[in-house]
């Protein structure tokens, strides 16, 4: 390790080693290793089929790798083996220290429950039992994601795509997770809506100091949000490093192709 400041001596919050996973003949993950430090935003970019979404699911414990391990260092400093901690512990993590923002807000929201109930669910899951407090906190979070608190009793079905995605973000961040997985959070939205959402995510993530693993095929989103970048192709990490260096000085032929295919990233 070259000389660096003290914060560099701290340990990764999430580490993956030698992750491999095949679906039949397709190698979705091939010897993938990843480290993520507290408060860091790591973007995983690549085309569809590159294995980036599979990697996200494996990191979050939603899919089991054929080989390799993912470890998470919790708030007490205990290192947990994500795929061997048992479902109760994993679920507890998923609703406390972790969050997951899905590409399709319908997968991350309860469509039959009001906006306030959606935001309040994680609070209640960790034991909040005061209706007034839960509602007040939900209201604050709606405002924070630029949804009028007057919509607190509306169901997400009445919301636009961008609002739904912002609601999903409020619902995920309300318990102040330390680590959030995001799967194409701006996918499927209009360009103008994307910009607003990206900016919102950028602000919240830096204000709250959340570590994020962001899967995206949107290079501009990665540049805006990520401290570091991982480029995946055919289940392998072909290049990784500082976001602007990977994008401005790409070394791997595939990264050069990826960057050159984007207008003004």
């Amino acid at each position: 390790m070259s000389p660096g400041d003290e914060s560099i001596l701290d340990e990764p919050i999430l580490s993956a080693r030698n992750l491999s996973l095949s679906f039949g003949d397709v190698r979705a993950l091939d010897e993938v290793a990843i480290d993520l430090w507290p408060g860091e935003v790591l973007a995983i970019v690549g085309e569809s089929g590159s294995g980036k979404s599979t990697l996200l699911r494996v990191l979050a414990g939603e899919a089991r790798p054929d080989a390799g391990a993912v470890t998470y260092r919790d708030t007490t400093g205990t290192v947990l083996d994500v795929h061997n901690m048992g479902e109760p512990a994993l679920r507890r993590l998923a609703r406390t220290e972790w969050g997951f923002v899905r590409q399709d807000a319908r997968d991350g929201l309860r469509m039959g429950v009001s906006a306030g109930g959606n935001v309040g669910e994680r609070l209640m899951a960790v034991g909040a039992r005061h209706y007034g407090d839960i509602r007040a906190e939900a209201s604050r979070w709606l405002e924070r994601v630029e949804i009028s608190p007057t919509r607190i009793d509306d169901r997400p079905g009445l919301f636009s795509g961008g609002m739904r995605q912002r609601l999903q973000i409020a619902r995920t961040l309300v318990t102040r997770p330390r680590l959030v997985f995001m799967d194409e959070p701006t996918g499927g939205l209009d360009v103008s809506v994307q910009a607003r959402l990206l900016d919102l995510i950028r602000g919240l993530v830096s204000d709250l100091g959340i570590a994020v693993v962001l899967v995206t095929h949107d290079i501009a989103a990665a540049r805006l949000l990520a401290h570091r970048l991982v480029v995946m192709r055919d289940g392998r990490v072909v290049e990784e490093g500082l976001t602007d260096r990977v994008l401005d000085d790409p070394r791997h032929p595939y990264t050069q192709l990826l960057v050159s295919s984007v207008l003004a990233a």
């Binding site: 109760p88 679920r91 306030g116 899951a125 009793d153």
Partner: peptide
């Protein structure tokens, strides 16, 4: 079944929240 096994009942509380939000009482 999994929610029962894990005593993960936040969801039920959400239902009660919705009742109060909609009907004003638990």
């Amino acid at each position: 079944k999994r929610l029962h096994a894990l005593a993960d009942y936040g969801l039920m509380q959400v239902k009660l929240y919705e009742d109060i939000a909609r009907h004003g009482r638990v």
